[in-house]
């Protein structure tokens, strides 16, 4: 059998650098949805800690670091971004590695770009480093996280990768045009 070449979700679309913002794709080795069964929350969090070094995140938060992060993704569930996981007793787990388009928006203009697209309060007092949200970008459901002072991670369904990049590119151009 021949060697197949895997294409990433944003292949041919990124990176982009416009004004004070850059947009790059992030490719994780694995993305796993983890949903602890009722009453197993602590044990699952402990298992995650020993497998990938971060606890199960509270609502609206992420834990861990760049190559090994867990982000809250809805009621009673989180997405683990980075290392593949071994099965954890007491949790429903799904491999979603190829289901998401993940991008990083960074630079001094990053927040102004996001503010054009996302209807949540992005000011420092309410959306800090380590915070996360399920929200929308234009009309698209996303997972949003702040991973640095001027850096945000955005995840959208892979089938919407082209729309995600288009909407972000349009907003980056509009912010840059204001000088």
């Amino acid at each position: 059998m021949g060697d197949l070449i895997a294409k990433s979700a944003c292949d041919g679309l990124l990176p982009l650098e416009i004004g004070g913002a850059t947009l790059t794709e992030i490719v994780f080795d694995a993305i796993t949805s983890v949903a602890p069964w009722r009453g197993h929350e602590q044990a699952v969090s402990d298992a995650l800690k020993s497998q990938m070094g971060a606890a199960f995140p509270a609502p609206n938060r992420s834990t861990g670091k760049a190559k090994s992060r867990a982000v809250w993704s809805g009621r009673g569930q989180a997405l683990v971004l980075g290392p593949p996981l071994e099965p954890i007793a007491g949790a429903a787990m799904t491999d979603q590695t190829d289901a998401w388009a993940c991008v990083a928006l960074e630079g001094p203009a990053a927040r102004d770009v996001l503010a054009r697209l996302v209807p949540i309060d992005l000011r420092d007092g309410s959306f800090k480093r380590g915070h996360a949200a399920r929200t929308q970008l234009m009309h698209m459901s996303i997972v949003l996280m702040r991973t640095g002072a001027d850096r945000y991670g955005i995840m959208a369904l892979r089938s919407m990768a082209g729309t995600l990049v288009h909407d972000l590119e349009t907003a980056m151009e509009a912010v840059a045009a204001r000088g």
Partner: peptide, 10 residues
């Protein structure tokens, strides 16, 4: 109750 105050469009 989970996400906090949000715009009604959500």
């Amino acid at each position: 109750p989970i996400c906090g105050e949000r715009d009604s469009r959500e």
